[in-house]
Computed example of a mutant assay.
Amino acid sequence: MTQTETDQQPPATVRSRVRIPLTFPDGFRVEAEVFTFHGLTDGAEHLALALGDTDGAGIPLVRLHSECLTGDVFGSDRCDCGPQLRESVERIAEAGGYLVYLRQEGRGIGLYNKLDAYALQDTGLDTYQANTALGLPEDGRDYTAAAQMLAGLGATTVALLSNNPDKAEQLARLGIEVAERVPTGVHVSASNVRYLRAKVEHTGHSIPLARLVG
């Protein structure tokens, strides 16, 4: 494909790199090499964390993880973001690859809007209906910057750790070959089962929810 056909943008360039030891609440520890970048099309402060042996990994395992303050930091049970982040770091560290941490709170609608959407969900709307009721996109995320970061790191062919088919489709259009899409585990709770069911039924996420909760 040509650049026009794939929507491919120039690779980002590495701005800085620093090693950071990570410790999770359950005691799991790993060292990450954290990259910042110049040249990202959206101008946001996205990060890439190299985990494990990226040089010897062959095809790196990659997770595109959208920032979720409530789930990643405060441990909210309304979504599965925090558990997915924890799982992804360990699995990528074992396989060798990158966690791409994207500043896309609330599927790109921002923190305050996400909390407004939560209030609407409490009235019976699902996560997508709540966004559209606010006049916002169901999912406003664009993965152009993620593709630029991966290209800048030389990871132009990846195994994608994701249940979301849109991530793989966008990366392919942006010039990143997805050799395999690897599902995450299912992190279900009483508080997030409606949220997970909406992702399965509305956007085709590969979560075997029916087998687990009926």
Rank of each mutant, 00 (worst) to 15 (best):
E5N: 08
V14A: 13
V14C: 08
L22N: 04
T23P: 00
A44Y: 13
L51M: 10
G52R: 05
D53T: 10
D55H: 14
G56C: 14
A57W: 01
A57T: 07
P60F: 09
P60K: 14
L61P: 06
L61S: 15
V62S: 10
R63E: 00
S66A: 08
L69K: 10
G71I: 04
D77C: 08
S88Y: 09
G96T: 00
G96I: 05
Y98R: 02
L102H: 00
R103Q: 14
R103C: 11
E105G: 02
E105Y: 04
G106A: 05
G108P: 00
I109W: 10
I109R: 04
Y112N: 08
K114I: 12
D116H: 06
Y118E: 05
G124I: 09
G124Q: 08
L125F: 01
L125V: 01
Y128H: 05
A130S: 12
A130L: 01
N131T: 09
G135H: 12
R141S: 15
Y143C: 11
G152S: 04
G154L: 15
A155V: 05
V158T: 03
L160R: 02
S162R: 10
N163P: 07
A168T: 03
Q170W: 01
L171D: 06
I176Y: 03
R181W: 07
P183K: 11
H187V: 13
V188E: 14
S191F: 14
N192M: 12
V193P: 01
R194L: 13
Y195K: 05
K199I: 03
K199S: 03
E201Y: 02
P208W: 04
L209K: 09
R211I: 04
